[in-house]
Design a protein around this nucleic acid. Structure first.
Lengths: 313, 313
DNA sequence: CCACGGTTTATTATAGATAAAAAAATTCAC
DNA sequence: GTGAATTTTTTTATCTATAATAAACCGTGG
């Protein structure tokens, strides 16, 4: 059965919205609410009907008004507002990056499902999507093995990341000054400065900004495979930032400054300056990630190759 | 319910194996048969018991012998020996490359499932795995859209392919002469020559050789993301070769000769020679693929970017 | 007429169940 | 006591079912 997480999140959001209104103020139309909260009208109607049951909405049809009441219904807990698949991703990544299970660990679908409190279908679906992130691998007769969040992983990830980003950043040298992209860069630059200004309180906002910045750079010459790879990067870093609290403020501040240098280099439209700034930033990001890995040694090539799943055809 | 395709293929294979035996010859042990056919003993036992029912095997336990009989049991049809997921892949790729549905076509799971004669789960699982091949994309509220097998696709594919392969091929200049890899290359070279020798009859064997050749090149400096990308390449070409029969013999002959030049360049361990041969071959492969695409124009960047699924976090 | 609420239909996300296949444990015969 | 066969247990592949959600359709009051 599909979970009603969409409804629950919408309900919470609607509650926040509605309690800001004046007593007696008319409720916006179902369509506009739907658009505002990013859900369908079906869901909005469900939310409204519950709200009405609680006596927070009076009237019906076109004549609905907010009715301030002491009966303040409870918000749904945050956990229940995220979809099963998102839950699985979160729990899995936490296990992976936090508990750091050794490479070679085999993954048991049923066990994981029970552990995460979801059906096996959810696990399977996740594993399939997650496959190309390089942290797990299919075995010949079904089943999955962990590759582990190792130094190898970080090195291979960054080899590709550097290739892709140097290619994209390099393209900036050729972009005419009147291109719209420069404004986007400039506005990101401002965001960086704002964040830096309040770094002591907002340092955890960097993860998202980082992802948007690198995506923007790689979007100048769109390539779906590079964009797909950005998803890998974003996922790894998203969870890595969440977990690795050590020196977080400090690390993020350094990274912001590197970004600013990088942005200046882009504006200069000088190919070698760009190249330098790009390499410098990526090298430092690599360092940070590698320090967080389990540092297991590289397996020899033969075993590595042999473990690969033979394609079927 | 899991399908018994493994059993059926094993049965067919066992039939082939057993009918080559002499009357009265003892049957190999269950373990060795299992190893030989690549299935578990459980499956072998099932096969043997059916074979015994047909009177092709006499005796039991350690004393099983082949008993030639006129009761020649029928092989299972080939269709029933491929797993559901493999079936889905095949049918989907055929639809994609052959019927060439226009980009933007939305994919209906239930409809596809009925059309392919499988449960929706099979379709979902395929779509999830297939996502990163760049031919389909997730929409915001669930559902999938086709990106289409377009010229754009081919161009983006080859941009990455070239990046990766130049990186790997370049590494050959540094490999010491006594490395084991040179023997592997040499043996592939011989296979190329053999194929060329009998090109009129065996030209369709090139697809597999091609894939093995490029995988070998990219295996010198192992990187899981590059290996993953080889899967994309292999899949596209596998089906492309199957479908595009036009000038097939001719095209493959040309490609083989390019490979031979490429191999000679590798043996030379001269970086610029290698670079040249690699580029030449990839350019010609790109040409071939592009001619097969539907040639739809590139969509503008804004729309392209906008269609991307926003990550949740 | 047209934007909005009411109603119906289509589609997906996810649970749950089960046979097939693999793996492990046990027994047997020489 | 060893290699093979038998039995049991574990795990996956795959189907079916259904609530949640989105989307389409429809009538009506201003």
């Amino acid at each position: 059965m599909k979970s009603d997480t969409v409804f629950k999140r919408a309900f919470n959001d609607a509650l926040d919205l509605i309690t800001k209104m004046e007593d007696g103020e008319p409720i916006p139309s179902e369509n506009s609410l739907g658009k505002r909260l990013g859900v369908s009208r079906t869901t909005i109607r469900k939310v409204l009907s519950i709200l009405a049951e609680h006596g927070m909405i009076a009237g019906s049809g076109r004549r609905r008004i907010y009715h301030e009441s002491r009966a303040n219904p409870e918000r749904f807990p945050e956990d229940e507002t995220v979809s099963t698949s998102a839950q699985v991703e979160k729990r899995f990544m936490e296990w992976m990056l936090h508990d750091n299970p050794p490479r070679g660990t085999v993954i048991n679908e049923l066990e994981l499902a029970r552990h995460f409190g979801v059906a096996t279908t959810g696990i399977r679906e996740f594993l399939n999507r997650f496959q190309h992130f390089g942290l797990i691998e299919k075995r010949q007769h079904g089943g999955w093995v962990l590759n582990g969040f190792t130094t190898d992983f970080a090195l291979e990830l960054f080899e590709i990341r550097e290739m892709f980003e140097l290619r994209s950043a390099g393209a900036f040298a050729e972009i005419p000054k009147n291109s719209a992209i420069w404004q986007e860069i400039e506005s990101l630059r401002k965001e960086h400065l704002q964040l830096l200004d309040d770094i002591d309180h907002r340092y955890h906002d960097f993860s998202d900004l980082d992802s948007r910045f690198h995506r923007l750079i790689n979007s100048v010459k769109p390539n779906r495979f590079i964009e797909g790879f950005q998803d890998v990067i974003a996922l790894i870093f998203h969870y890595h930032y969440q977990w690795n609290k050590k020196d977080e403020r400090q690390r993020n501040e350094v990274a912001i400054r590197e970004h600013l240098t990088y942005i200046d280099a882009l504006f200069s439209r000088n190919a070698s300056l760009i190249d330098l700034a790009c390499r410098a930033h990526l090298a430092s990001a690599k360092e940070t990630l590698i320090r967080a890995t389990s540092g297991q040694e590289k397996v020899n090539v033969a075993e590595h190759g042999g473990a690969r799943r033979p394609r079927e055809h």
